[in-house]
Design a protein around this nucleic acid. Structure first.
Length: 928
RNA sequence: GCCGCAGUGGUGAAAUUGGUAGACACGCUAGACUUAGGAUCUAGUGCUUUACGGCGUGGGGGUUCAAGUCCCUCCUGCGGCACCA
């Protein structure tokens, strides 16, 4: 009598592949449901047990939805362009396509072993020309579009050009790099080159000189979300600021829509919050401070218009355009020195020494338009060039950064707000937005918020400036100086960029002799022979970044083999958008912003039917590794001390492969053969209950090859079967929570499955009773179905596994092996495991039902037939407050409750499911 | 600094609307069957107390007949943003 999971897994894996069980049809009268996993980057390390966590959850959900009568789209693919394959190519000379291909094969094998119900016929791979054709196509559309702020959507650039022909730049409201002003005659007089420059200012995909994050070690620029604390996210190499000509996407045009539409999204609050932070909307005013003795005004942005009477100096960013205009001759050399110094400090240095205050006086003054007082203009590197206008009005009394600057350079601090802790503004700034205005003329006595709106109103009235909104979100830099990415469908003619038309797409990635920059420092594509289009015009040398291919892949799954369009209207109309998106929350500021942007752009142009791509999202937590350590004597490199004894020695901690450690006990023999340098290792063991053993230390760390803590799903599947892995991963805890991988409980799940299997087998023989289940048995079943259904709907997979176990254990106690129970029970979670229902279906003559248990069918066959006559709902609770003698026993109270008139009125004709009697005579009755 | 989330046995964790806290599982203890047990089964297992009982959801306070759950406050941990004006 054995539970042969290997045989069962294999049989069904084959069956599903042969019969294409999970192939999804587009034309169905059933309602659609689209369940999507974030597709993986196929890395050389293969899948670890953390990957399947989300896949298993989405798979259970997809199966559940299918069984509820939905036509479910549940595809999988690969985000195949990326740095690791290219780094590997640089080292070994192997073409990244080759390694990627190998990795994909391995990933597919591993995914199959977990028994996931993907429709593999729809697989997309971002590095395949048939796929990146559409990534390139979208780019060409962006190149040929601009963002109209009036209509609040992207429009074809031809529209803008005809506007320029008629009216020049007058009356246009667009998202642009800078506000330009020209007449129609001027426009007509522009030569092609000039026109091109003008248009770049408006295109959704444009070429511009921009400050970029340059990573010398990787030889490429990086997007803001690819940099953390001044280091590259991949590889942790230093990143510096540098100005380069790059392709950019005008993501900022969509800032407000990205923010607004968030309210409709069923995403976790924290996820939305991260996006809100990233977009960083701040409302305020932009106004001009006239520069003394010049016909020039300093434009500043402030969210604290109320504090204008407290402005005591101005600060410009070192890279500000104003700098040269306001620097006086006396100050010129000091300013130049300072600018030089700023350039040397990298982004990272600036971040490391946040507290360091530096700056220089320009020599000029401007006039505060309200106080009419003269205030000095300074330069300071705490003001950022890229945000707002690159210039600020400093209010040291109520802004801690301005305060620090004022202290350092001994500038006046003028309090204008009287708040709770504002007495001490000379020593410490009072930043809070509460209190009342003082020293502020017409604002005196107003609360801060009132003062802000009154001031903005006044500024607009007097035409000094306007109320405006700034976003932290910047345009995405879209060029990478790398090989393994989508080539741009861009060629240069007379030095001007043009995009290829659809019939010339895809522009295929050329072969190169090495994956490094050229000797002249051009990107690797510079090495390609004949890297030019049909007319002999040279192609763009950089490639697209990682997020390009992942920005519209969910649309492609709807219609993956279409070579006329990214997705056909019909397919898109049917599948619309993703109903459930499952993936890690680390993509909050990258992929999920870009994909939303990309989708909105396609929506504006009518290429996508829905504005938002991902309706609902669930973020599975990370599964961390549990690393093990051995302790080597510092004095003797061959001796290892058990954890309990390390206090007595000088030791060095070393990672040890978790696969040769069981329950923190080291397998000594395996350790010696693990690595050649340990073959003669000696051990100082500790004594535990009469057993001498080597205990290892442990720590929770990220799962990674270098820490030897990677657990592979395959090994679990081989040892326990796919069902155990799946149930166990779900049982581990709440899906959204990060948790360390530990196998301590896996035996419990395995034991459960063995027991469950045995319940329906007599020895080797499948054994099932045709008897009608009893009321009690049905009650167990229906309670379980109810609980599991609602748990799956709310993504509480851990409790749903528990409910499953409870039901099975209860039925097993009743020795129930009736067929009326088995079918539904198997279906509930039925991960990989038709192991019992398989034979069940054969016995019942349902062998054609490969998707072995459609929920509605079961409902008809088993549930409706036997009917829900046993209450499963726990709703309808009532509360009573009764006055009863104090010393009654529980039974007596219950009796009194039932006799009570009020109570009787309520429970008349209903079944009492549960009665709770607690001290002080409060009863809680649950009726069915 | 700002924002978000969390804190429950030895462990992973349950607990619809406030209603018997600790389901389920691991571990542990005892017993059964066993040559053996790292197999299987049975019973027990929050802390404390010989017992009756008392105490228990990070600390303190509050609302309530009733608080893990609601309110105030403090502490700790995790995540995000960060010279963004």
């Amino acid at each position: 009598m054995a539970y042969e999971f290997n045989r069962i897994d294999e049989k069904w894996r084959k069956n599903w592949a042969d019969k294409k069980t999970f192939k999804t049809e587009d034309n169905s009268t059933k309602p659609k449901y689209y369940v999507l996993d974030m597709f993986p980057y196929p890395s050389g390390a293969g899948l670890h047990v953390g990957h399947p966590l989300g896949y298993i959850a989405s798979d259970i959900y997809a199966r559940y939805k299918r069984n509820c009568g939905f036509n479910v789209l549940h595809p999988m693919g690969y985000d195949a362009f990326g740095l690791p394959a290219e780094q590997y190519a640089i080292q070994t000379g192997t073409h990244p396509a080759v390694t990627t291909e190998q990795n994909i094969i391995r990933y597919k094998e591993q995914l199959d072993k977990v028994g996931l119900s993907f429709d593999w016929s729809r697989q997309v791979t971002t590095s395949e020309p048939s796929y990146y054709k559409w990534t390139q196509w979208a780019f060409t559309k962006m190149f040929e579009s601009y963002y109209d702020k009036e209509e609040n959507k992207a429009l074809p650039i031809s529209k803008l050009i005809s506007h320029f022909d008629k009216k020049g730049s007058a009356e246009i409201k667009t998202a642009c790099s800078e506000e330009l002003s020209f007449t129609k005659d001027e426009w007509k007089s522009f030569d092609l080159k000039k026109r091109d420059q003008v248009l770049q200012n408006y295109r959704m995909a444009y070429l511009d000189d921009v400050p970029v994050n340059w990573c010398a070690a990787l030889g490429t620029v990086l997007a803001n979300d690819e940099v953390k604390d001044g280091l590259s996210v991949r590889g942790a190499h230093p990143v510096i600021q540098k100005t380069m000509k790059q392709w950019c996407l005008r993501v900022s045009a969509y800032a407000q829509r990205l923010l607004d539409n968030m309210d409709q999204l069923d995403w976790s609050e924290s996820m939305k919050e991260v996006q809100r932070n990233w977009i960083g909307r701040s409302k305020g005013a932009q106004l001009e401070f006239p520069v003394k003795g010049q016909d020039l005004g300093l434009e500043v942005f402030t969210t604290r218009a109320d504090t204008i009477f407290g402005v005591s100096f101005m600060v410009l960013a070192p890279e500000s355009d104003y700098v040269s205009a306001v620097t006086t001759d006396e100050q010129r050399s000091a300013v130049e020195n300072y600018l030089e110094e700023c350039k040397k400090r990298s982004q990272r240095d600036r971040m490391m020494e946040v507290k360091r205050v530096s700056g220089v006086f320009t020599g000029s003054y401007c006039t505060n338009p309200f106080t009419k007082k003269e205030i000095p203009i300074w330069i300071g590197d705490y003001v950022l060039g890229g945000y707002g206008t690159g210039a600020i009005m400093a209010v040291p009394a109520h802004d801690s950064r301005d305060h620090a600057f004022a202290k350092k350079f001994d500038l006046p601090i003028i309090p204008v707000i009287d708040g709770e802790a504002s007495e001490n503004v000379q020593e410490e700034s009072y930043d809070a937005k509460s209190g009342k205005l003082i020293n502020s003329d017409f604002l005196n006595g107003l609360k801060v918020k009132e003062a802000i709106s009154k001031m903005i109103h006044r500024i607009e009235e007097s035409k000094m400036g306007i109320g405006t909104i700034n976003y932290r979100l910047r345009d995405a830099i879209f060029s990478r100086q790398r090989y393994w990415g989508e080539p741009f469908p861009v060629y240069y003619k007379d030095g001007m960029p043009h995009v290829e038309s659809l019939e010339n797409l895809p522009v295929e990635l050329p072969d190169v002799d090495a994956y490094l920059p050229t000797e002249e420092g051009a990107p690797p594509l510079g090495r390609a022979k004949k890297w030019e289009n049909k007319e002999g015009h040279p192609y763009e040398l950089s490639t697209m970044p990682g997020f390009a291919g992942s920005s519209a892949y969910y649309l492609r799954y709807m219609d993956p083999h279409n070579d006329k369009a990214l997705v056909s209207k019909e397919a898109n109309q049917y599948w619309k958008s993703v109903d459930l998106y499952v993936g890690g929350n680390e993509h909050a500021t990258g992929h999920l912003i870009y994909a939303r942007f990309w989708n909105k752009f396609l929506y504006d142009l009518g290429h996508a039917v829905e504005d938002e791509p991902f309706k609902k999202m669930i973020n599975q937590g990370m599964i961390q590794g549990r690393s093990n350590f051995v302790y080597r004597l510092k004095s003797d490199k061959n001796k290892f001390v058990s954890l309990g004894l390390i206090d007595q020695h000088e030791v060095q901690k070393l990672h040890v492969d978790v696969n040769i450690v069981d329950n923190d006990t080291l397998d000594l023999k395996a350790f010696k053969s693990w690595r050649p340098e340990f073959k003669d290792a000696e051990f100082i063991l500790e004594e535990n209950d009469g057993v001498s053993e080597y205990k290892c230390g442990w720590a929770v760390e990220k799962m990674s090859k270098s820490m030897f803590n990677v657990v592979n799903p395959d090994t679990i599947v081989e040892k326990y079967g796919a069902d155990t892995l799946r149930l166990y991963e779900m049982f581990l805890g709440p899906l959204e929570q990060s948790k360390p991988w530990n196998t301590n409980g896996i035996e419990g799940v395995y034991r459960f499955l063995v027991k469950y299997w045995a319940q329906f087998h007599d020895g080797e023989k499948f054994s099932i009773s045709e008897e009608e289940p009893t009321a009690e048995e049905f009650k167990i079943l229906h309670t379980c179905i109810k609980k599991i259904s609602s748990d799956i709907e709310s993504f509480s997979f851990n409790t749903s596994v528990s409910a499953f176990m409870i039901a099975c254990n209860e039925l097993s106690k009743l020795k129930c092996n009736k067929r009326g129970i088995l079918g539904p029970l198997t279906v509930l979670l039925s991960p990989f495991a038709p192991h019992t229902s398989e034979e069940l279906w054969e016995l019942l003559g349902h062998t054609t039902s490969i998707n072995y248990a459609a929920w509605p069918n079961l409902e008809e066959k088993y549930l409706v037939e036997s009917s829900f006559k046993y209450p499963v709902s726990f709703n309808g609770k009532m509360r009573f407050l009764l006055e009863l003698p104090i010393d009654l026993s529980k039974e007596e109270i219950e009796e009194n409750v039932l006799k009570n008139e009020e109570t009787q009125k309520w429970i008349e004709g209903k079944t009492i499911r549960k009665m709770i009697v607690v001290p002080k005579k409060i009863v809680n009755i649950v009726i069915g």
